[in-house]
């Protein structure tokens, strides 16, 4: 027991020494000449994937720092419109991207970096045997959706319309995580969320796929903001997402555009 403690201490000290040496290393280590910091405004649903990609990017280009600010796309759009300083904006839908573009705050056309499919989320084991969108109209089944005002609610409404299913939800949640937690806590029997959310939710829930013909695909556009203070680094980061980042995005459940 004590031996293990001592070993742990030694490791901790060693790690501390190594990291303490870090800043001593030559600053211009990056062959590409990239350095400095950028701030990326990104939709909440990108949190896990982008954190991973950011870390990979920093490793690839020592001396660079990528900071993230994750929030709902509409909140981010509002923040940018109110003058928040940043370099890159990745939205979970097109309308919020349009707001920023129309405000004249971008310097180029946005690029779609990923897509996200909708999925029916149910409790683990699917106790209510929800197999298709049509089942959501079943009486006695408690269904929660996102509010129409937020992207996931907007997409859910489109999907249900395509399928010709009329659902009376028990609640219109403010965001997709709330839908997920209502199902995870057992308050609701089913909900409509993104594939990525089901994947990140773990063991409490499982997804029921929606046929591609009925599905509405969420697009994630990214753009470099006009007021970027480090345009070179911002451009490098965006192109990194479009190349090496794709695999990472796929690992988190996103589909490629």
């Amino acid at each position: 027991m004590r031996a293990r403690l001592v070993a742990a201490l030694l490791v901790a000290i060693a790690v501390g020494l190594v990291s303490a040496c870090g800043p001593m290393a030559p600053v211009s280590a990056s062959q590409s000449g990239l350095n400095g910091t950028i701030t990326v405004f990104a939709a909440s649903s990108l949190n896990a994937a982008f954190t991973r990609i950011g870390a990979d990017f920093e490793k690839r280009h020592p001396g660079t720092i990528v900071k993230f600010s994750f929030a709902g796309s509409s909140s981010l759009a509002a923040q940018i419109q109110q003058g928040a300083l940043g370099d890159v904006f990745a939205s979970a839908d097109q309308p919020n991207m349009q707001k920023v573009i129309q405000a004249g705050l971008t310097s180029q056309m946005p690029i779609v970096i990923a897509r996200n499919d909708l999925e029916i989320v149910v409790a683990k084991g699917n106790p209510k045997h929800v197999e298709a969108l049509a089942d959501l109209a079943r009486s006695g089944l408690v269904v929660v959706l996102c509010a129409p005002a937020v992207p996931c609610g907007h997409y859910a409404a489109q999907t249900l319309q395509k399928a010709g299913v009329s659902v009376k939800p028990a609640s219109q949640e403010a965001d997709v995580k709330s839908v997920l937690s209502k199902v995870a806590l057992g308050e609701a029997d089913a909900g409509l969320v993104y594939v990525t959310d089901v994947k990140s939710a773990g063991n409490a829930v499982e997804g029921v796929a929606i046929p591609p013909a009925l599905n509405v695909v969420a697009e994630y556009p990214i753009v470099i903001l006009k007021d970027s203070q480090n345009r070179a680094l911002a451009r490098a980061f965006v192109s990194y997402i479009l190349t090496d980042g794709r695999q990472t995005l796929a690992r988190y459940g996103f589909t490629n555009p």
């Binding site: 709902g72 509409s74 909140s75 509002a78 929660v144 509010a147 129409p148 005002a149 937020v150 939800p169 028990a170 609640s171 219109q172 949640e173 403010a174 209502k182």
Partner: peptide, 23 residues
Amino acid sequence: AGNFPGTTQTMPLAVYLALESNP
């Protein structure tokens, strides 16, 4: 209680959601 107009959507909830779509 969730959020559904007429049943559980009180003013603060309506404000919050309106902020998303129509500030």
